[in-house]
Lab assay of single mutants.
Amino acid sequence: SIVTKIISIVQERQNMDDGAPVKTRDIADAAGLSIYQVRLYLEQLHDVGVLEKVNAGKGVPGLWRLL
């Protein structure tokens, strides 16, 4: 499923980069989806406690990390 793919992308990127959070844009590119589509999935995963959003604010790139 797309959700499983997104989780594995975040996991893979974090492992490659010493646990650093992953940008929404990088996840979207790797999943082959638009940034808006991916954001909806990321928000859902956040709501159920799978991911945390590391930063927030208007015009700030979203950074995500697995919990």
Rank of each mutant, 00 (worst) to 15 (best):
S1I: 10
S1C: 15
S1D: 12
S1K: 10
I2V: 08
I2Q: 04
I2S: 03
I2T: 06
V3W: 15
V3T: 09
V3I: 14
V3E: 05
V3M: 14
V3F: 15
T4R: 14
T4S: 13
T4H: 13
K5H: 08
K5D: 04
K5M: 12
K5R: 13
K5N: 06
I6M: 03
I7P: 01
I7S: 01
I7Q: 02
I7K: 04
I7A: 03
S8I: 08
S8R: 14
S8N: 11
S8K: 14
I9S: 03
I9T: 03
I9M: 03
I9P: 00
V10M: 15
V10N: 00
V10K: 01
V10Y: 01
V10P: 00
V10C: 05
V10H: 00
Q11L: 11
Q11C: 12
Q11R: 14
E12T: 11
E12M: 13
E12P: 01
E12K: 10
R13I: 12
R13D: 00
R13Q: 07
R13L: 15
R13M: 11
Q14F: 05
Q14L: 04
Q14I: 04
Q14P: 02
N15A: 14
N15T: 11
N15M: 13
M16V: 08
M16L: 11
M16N: 10
M16D: 07
M16Q: 12
M16C: 09
D17M: 15
D17E: 12
D17K: 13
D17L: 15
D17Y: 15
D17C: 15
D17I: 09
D18I: 07
D18T: 07
D18F: 12
D18R: 12
D18C: 14
D18K: 12
D18P: 11
G19C: 09
G19W: 05
G19P: 04
G19F: 06
G19Q: 06
G19Y: 15
G19L: 04
A20C: 08
A20R: 13
A20H: 10
A20Y: 10
A20E: 07
A20M: 09
A20W: 05
P21L: 07
P21Y: 10
P21I: 04
V22S: 05
V22Q: 05
V22Y: 01
V22T: 04
V22M: 08
V22W: 04
K23N: 09
K23L: 06
K23W: 05
K23Q: 08
K23D: 08
K23T: 11
K23Y: 05
T24V: 04
T24P: 03
T24I: 03
T24R: 02
T24D: 12
T24S: 04
R25E: 14
R25H: 07
R25M: 08
R25T: 10
R25I: 09
R25Q: 12
R25Y: 06
R25C: 07
R25K: 14
R25N: 08
D26I: 06
D26M: 05
D26W: 06
D26K: 02
D26N: 03
I27P: 00
I27H: 01
I27T: 01
I27Y: 10
I27W: 02
A28S: 04
A28F: 03
A28Q: 02
A28W: 03
A28K: 01
A28H: 15
D29V: 12
D29K: 13
D29T: 12
D29R: 13
A30H: 06
A30D: 09
A30M: 08
A30P: 01
A30I: 06
A31V: 14
A31E: 01
G32K: 07
G32C: 06
G32H: 07
L33V: 05
L33K: 02
L33S: 02
L33I: 09
S34P: 12
S34M: 04
S34I: 04
S34C: 06
S34N: 08
S34R: 06
S34V: 09
I35M: 12
I35R: 04
I35P: 05
I35G: 03
I35Y: 09
Y36I: 10
Y36D: 11
Y36A: 13
Y36K: 14
Y36L: 09
Y36N: 10
Q37S: 07
Q37M: 14
Q37T: 12
Q37C: 12
Q37V: 14
Q37I: 15
V38E: 00
V38F: 01
V38M: 06
V38R: 00
V38P: 00
V38K: 00
V38T: 14
V38W: 01
R39A: 10
R39L: 15
R39F: 07
R39M: 13
R39D: 05
L40M: 12
L40H: 09
L40P: 10
Y41D: 00
L42N: 00
L42W: 02
L42Q: 00
L42C: 06
L42G: 00
L42V: 02
L42T: 11
L42M: 03
L42E: 00
E43Y: 08
E43S: 06
E43H: 09
E43L: 07
E43T: 06
E43V: 06
Q44I: 14
Q44L: 14
Q44H: 15
Q44Y: 15
L45Y: 00
L45K: 02
L45F: 01
L45A: 02
L45S: 00
L45R: 00
L45M: 06
H46K: 12
H46M: 10
H46Y: 10
H46P: 03
D47A: 15
D47L: 13
D47N: 13
D47M: 13
D47W: 11
D47G: 09
V48D: 12
V48E: 14
G49P: 05
G49M: 03
G49W: 02
G49L: 03
G49Q: 04
G49A: 02
V50P: 03
V50Q: 04
V50N: 01
V50W: 05
L51N: 02
E52W: 03
E52Q: 08
E52M: 08
E52C: 08
E52D: 05
K53G: 03
K53H: 07
K53W: 08
K53S: 04
V54D: 02
V54G: 01
V54S: 03
N55T: 09
N55E: 09
N55W: 12
N55F: 12
N55C: 13
N55I: 07
N55K: 09
N55P: 10
A56K: 09
A56V: 11
A56C: 14
G57D: 08
G57H: 07
K58H: 10
K58F: 09
K58N: 14
K58C: 13
K58S: 11
G59M: 05
G59S: 09
G59I: 04
V60A: 13
V60Q: 15
V60S: 14
V60L: 13
V60W: 14
P61Q: 14
P61W: 13
P61A: 14
G62M: 14
G62K: 10
L63P: 02
L63D: 07
L63R: 11
L63S: 11
L63Y: 10
L63I: 04
W64K: 01
W64V: 01
W64H: 01
W64G: 00
W64R: 01
W64C: 03
W64P: 10
R65K: 09
R65L: 08
L66Q: 02
L66C: 06
L66T: 06
L66P: 02
L67N: 11
L67K: 14
L67T: 13
L67R: 13
